[in-house]
Design a protein around this nucleic acid. Structure first.
Lengths: 238, 238
DNA sequence: CGTACGTTTGACGTCCTTCAAGTTGGGTGG
DNA sequence: CCACCCAACTTGAAGGACGTCAAACGTACG
């Protein structure tokens, strides 16, 4: 029956014990204003002032940043259930952008409503904090990954992480999941050029670790993929 | 008279309007248990269960992570006034380590006390959230930096950031501040080898941008250093 | 059926690493 | 206070991982 839970509830539940009533309150708040954006469109851009927090309900979102000269870095990936920037309005201006990789459906929660949710329930507050702390932990792992891992390890690590997270929300049956990044996107997420990403992917394929075709990823040998990636899932705190 | 404020109050004040009484409550909580660690000693290690949150009062702390094979990445640097991991206990286990770069003095606040502080004052809660959000923003910038900037830009960016932050807490008079990282440390923070760090430092020196000797950094030409670094301070949200 | 975007391939260049050997300088003990 | 010592810094030469450029190929979609 777990499949019937919304990704949001599923995510928050994993971040702390929430009563049915508390889940219902969040779902209700989220259901009040649902938006959609098309593939490859921006949801919000660096420098803008956010008025709502956003929760991904369906599709993949990339958090990214551009250097003054145009180089782009994808900072993290958000999948259904992920809260984009809890309390973003506390900082006034966005220091990064959010772009939809696929067609995306997301909930928008107003500041006042969001604050009421937190004020009304310590359990919800705690779940939101936990979600924020896990996001921070993932960001740290990305810093470490780009700083220390080699190209092949970095790409393998990205696959391990997304596979594990998708599995966590029930979206990776038979170790297969959506993976809507182009090779250029993978490059921007890992700090590599598309050409080099291509060659590393071929190596991973030849080793029988993954398949990646038409935006679907299949992990063929998790154990060996994790080894190649030096992947230790504890940073995901699941 | 600002110089008389403790770094902690100074930091939190920058994250929101706090009344004198609120500042006093925080100072009092922090003053209750003050510890010291020697240079190059760890404060807490990956895998351990934290029982208090830590606030740097004096000295520099590095947050770092090791890959299974020993490669080390410094994830961020903490200076006086910085809260190391607000709500760290929500995640149970540390997913990274904290190491003292210098002799360090820090406050430890118990979980119950920390929660009481937040419960007792919305302004304090907000200031803590803000501080956490800025930390997250800095982490994102580091990911982007390691992913997209060239070696020289990366190192220059690190100098810009630390110079700006030190200035923000009044510890960079005449554009000079403590900078207790060895060249090997700079390498671990930027994902470079010590040898290459050395060569890039020479380039920065030859260009008259900085001086760096015996753990002190002097910024000679901020404008040009910022250009070389592609540094835009807005991510610091000051 | 054509067009556009994503992927693949090859040749070549460069940024950064590796290895190995000095040199400097701050701290300590005699 | 000087001599020693170790860590940190510096230098050079050579190699490798990854980038750049340019072209061809595949494939989804209008």
């Amino acid at each position: 029956m777990e499949e019937l839970l919304s990704p949001l509830t599923r995510n928050l539940r994993s971040h702390g014990e929430l009563s049915a009533a508390e889940c219902a309150r969040i779902e209700e708040a989220a259901a009040r204003s649902i938006s959609t954006v098309g593939e490859r469109r921006d949801i919000i851009r660096e420098g803008e002032v956010p008025s709502t927090i956003k929760i991904v309900l369906d599709g993949w979102v990339a958090r990214y940043k551009q250097l003054p000269d145009g180089r782009r870095q994808i900072l993290s990936l958000m999948i259904p259930g992920d809260i984009c920037d809890a309390n973003a309005f506390i900082l006034e201006r966005m220091d990064h952008s959010l772009g939809a990789l696929t067609a995306v459906q997301f909930a928008r929660i107003e500041r006042t409503e969001f604050e009421a949710l937190m004020a009304g329930s310590p359990a919800i507050t705690r779940a939101l904090w936990r979600s924020e702390l896990v996001t921070a932990s993932i960001q740290r792992e990305w810093t470490a990954s780009v700083g220390q891992r080699q190209a092949l390890e970095r790409i393998a690590h990205l696959f391990c992480e997304m596979h594990t997270r998708m599995k966590g929300i029930g979206l990776a049956p038979r170790d297969t999941c959506e993976f809507p990044l182009t090779q250029a996107d993978i490059g921007e997420a890992t700090g590599l050029t598309p050409v080099h990403v291509n060659r590393m992917l071929q190596a991973l394929r030849k080793d029988g670790l993954i398949e990646l075709r038409s935006k679907r990823l299949q992990v063929l040998d998790i154990e060996r993929l994790r080894e190649r990636a030096l992947f230790d899932p504890s940073y995901l705190h699941i």
